[in-house]
């Protein structure tokens, strides 16, 4: 379970990067944050990870405050950035072993670890190769494998599918659905409306640090979602700050 209560982050700019975000993501939900660059999506994820401290408000994972329990909350959460960066000199297996051990799961045998690779559709041959040779799609899959191995109950994704080809992107969505099916709460920041509709259970549209609208994906068609997004961008600019280009 992920929860933000009046979560605010101001880096000292006139407009806060994140302005009183209130959000609750239950186990099994996939919440997609939509919005242009600079809307506050990455800031939200950084706050949940404790990479930066909120100016006001609380970010909770499970029932724990990220600020007061930095290490405990990280045990519960897995993070997949736009590029899952791994140690290029180590094999996929060695990377998975290391990150799992850091996550506190240091009892896995080799077979179990290879099982995680099977689970995300990576060949065992690939698992024994150095990560330096991996494609981006393969790295993102290792990211999912890490989340599974960690037994995370919450998942934070920062534009995980940007730059992936449609097939890899689709495979990634499938893996995500499997995780949420297993009761993981997922927060995904993305530009990809299509992916949000396919993989998400709810969407939220952000602009200039504010969460403007949320909706259930089941209630929307692709066209509805696109219209909703464009309307949000055009109207209701809270403070008249200029908008950046919307990347679709």
């Amino acid at each position: 379970m992920l929860e933000a209560i009046d979560l605010t982050k101001n880096y000292g700019t006139p407009v806060p990067s994140l302005d009183q975000l209130n959000l609750r993501i239950e186990p099994g939900e996939v919440f997609c944050l939509l919005g242009p660059n600079g809307a506050g999506k990455t800031t939200t994820i950084s706050l949940f990870l404790g990479f930066s401290a909120p100016t006001a408000g609380i970010a909770r994972i499970g029932s724990l405050d990220v600020q007061t329990h930095p290490l405990e909350t990280k045990r519960l959460v897995a993070y997949i950035p736009e590029q899952v960066m791994l140690y290029r000199n180590l094999t996929g297996l060695e990377n998975l072993e290391y990150f799992s051990a850091l996550a506190g799961q240091d009892r896995y045998g080799k077979e179990e670890l290879l099982g995680f690779f099977d689970g995300v559709g990576l060949s065992r041959e690939a698992a024994l190769r150095r990560v330096g040779t991996y494609s981006k799609g393969m790295r993102q899959k290792v990211g999912i494998a890490m989340a599974v191995a960690k037994r995370a109950t919450a998942l934070l994704l920062d534009e995980p599918t940007s730059g992936l080809d449609p097939k890899a992107s689709n495979e990634f969505s499938q893996l995500l659905l499997r995780l949420s099916g297993a009761g993981v709460a997922v927060l995904m920041a993305t530009h990809d409306l299509f992916r949000a509709k396919e993989a998400g259970t709810r969407v939220g549209i952000m602009k200039a640090g504010r969460l403007l609208t949320t909706a259930r994906t089941a209630d929307l068609t692709h066209a509805d979602l696109e219209r909703l997004y464009l309307e949000s961008m055009a109207a209701g600019i809270p403070d008249g700050s200029p908008l950046e280009e919307v990347a679709l």
Binding site: L49, F51, L71, K74, V77, Q83, L86, A103, G104
Partner: peptide, 13 residues
Amino acid sequence: EGTLAMLMSQPLA
């Protein structure tokens, strides 16, 4: 390299 963010998303000070 970008691995620092990956590391710090683990329960590691």
